[in-house]
Design a protein around this nucleic acid. Structure first.
Lengths: 226, 226
DNA sequence: GATCGGACTCGACAGGGTGTTGACCGGGGT
DNA sequence: ACCCCGGTCAACACCCTGTCGAGTCCGATC
């Protein structure tokens, strides 16, 4: 992680206030208002005035807490990615136990996290095109996940469970990209999309065949018989 | 195709003019200006005034030719998708000849088309979040491609070349989605991306393993020995 | 050759959103 | 008693969008 962190918390301080004071609840009120409004309309249709009024303050006062509308969304996105990281946990370190089950667990947990905050995720996808900061943050997060998957694939190859084929990094990028786009379509509901109940299994199937050439990868290392 | 078409041309008339007249070159001037400006900055940073001045007209006059800035982009997108459709041709009907080569041809041609108009494609991806019309058109185009791939997969399964597994439609959606997102990252260059020279082969590999469970699918039907 | 109508053009305005400025208020430390 | 400072907002300057009404040009019509 390269972003600066506040001394008090673990999330980057996208607001302006340095120390703590009574204005803390105003900040969370803005955040809460944003999440509520996001449930009923698109991010672009929410004005700073809406956010301010929803939090019981005037528009100029909004700027005391956040430098822009986008910064609010960025804070929301931080929470979601952190939750996803936590949900993923260390499943990738325990792949050899039962590869299929572990990969499924990984995908299912990401699915649950994103699905639980679909409004925020959808809004981020929308503004990623126009906002460089969101783009940067998402790129950073994705890079971390790509690296983790890449390392896991290399581990599986090392233990002989997966064949050497594509560069692990390229494969990791392709699979992560697929998940992102497929989830987006499923949550957004516009255009061709996989049904929500099936999406985890569909993604899992493509991951397993791309990594192992089979949907039933071997559980224990083939060359270790202690 | 469900969109209305002008009597004169083959593309939907996103401009306003009904008959032809001297204003034709103004319309293409706007389109050309849009493509040129898109090469140097983001769509959101281009104002209608920029487009108008670039075409040598005033801002109100712009509205005589297009109802909005987005309509210009929509016209540009039409061209690209039509070119992609033409480039794809009938490769999917000739899969049995040499599956690997045909699939590669399909992906490579799409890659070439999108890569040749990357500014337009990138801009469309950007506004898809905020513009319902772009979203609708893209969904329509994607649906067509998904159906074509789905049919091809079912054909390959019928001739015994590919195993029955995931519903063909879900698989087609996942693979098309992956391509879209991976190309976007490669062309945009932000965040983890596959290098442009490798991207076709990376995508191909995932497609083949997901569809056939192997990267060397059989060329001729297994049960036909005349 | 006058006139008419439609294609075409733009100056000017209204509306709505953003970001900033300067002043004001209230309370805790000195 | 004072003053700094967190917190607050009315008012302003700015930019962009979309529209309206008035004007020009030109081929078709009488």
């Amino acid at each position: 992680m390269t972003t600066a962190r506040t001394p008090t918390g673990t999330t980057p301080n996208r607001g302006r206030r340095a120390g703590r004071s009574t204005g803390d609840d105003r900040e969370v009120a803005i955040l809460a208002t944003a999440e509520r409004l996001l449930r009923e309309r698109a991010f672009g249709d929410i004005s700073i005035d809406d956010l301010a009024r929803g939090a019981g303050i005037s528009r100029p006062t909004f700027y005391f807490y956040f430098p822009s509308k986008d910064a609010v969304l960025l804070t929301l996105l931080d929470r979601v990615t952190e939750e996803a990281d936590a949900a993923a946990g260390d499943v990738l370190d325990r792949l050899a136990e039962d590869p299929r089950a572990r990969w499924r667990e990984l995908i299912a947990r990401f699915h649950a996290t994103f699905g639980g905050h679909r409004d925020v995720v959808l809004a981020c996808a929308q503004v990623r095109g126009t906002n460089a900061e969101v783009r940067r943050l998402w790129a950073e997060v994705l890079e971390r996940w790509v690296r983790a998957v890449q390392a896991a694939i290399e581990m599986e190859r090392a233990r002989g469970a997966a064949p050497d084929a594509l560069p692990a990094r390229d494969l990791a990028i392709a699979l992560n990209s697929m998940n992102e786009r497929v989830w987006y379509a499923t949550f957004a509901g516009d255009g061709p999309a996989v049904a929500e109940r099936d999406v985890v299994d569909v993604l899992l199937d493509v991951w397993l065949t791309a990594i192992y050439r089979t949907t039933t990868p071997p559980v224990t290392p083939s060359d270790r018989t202690p």
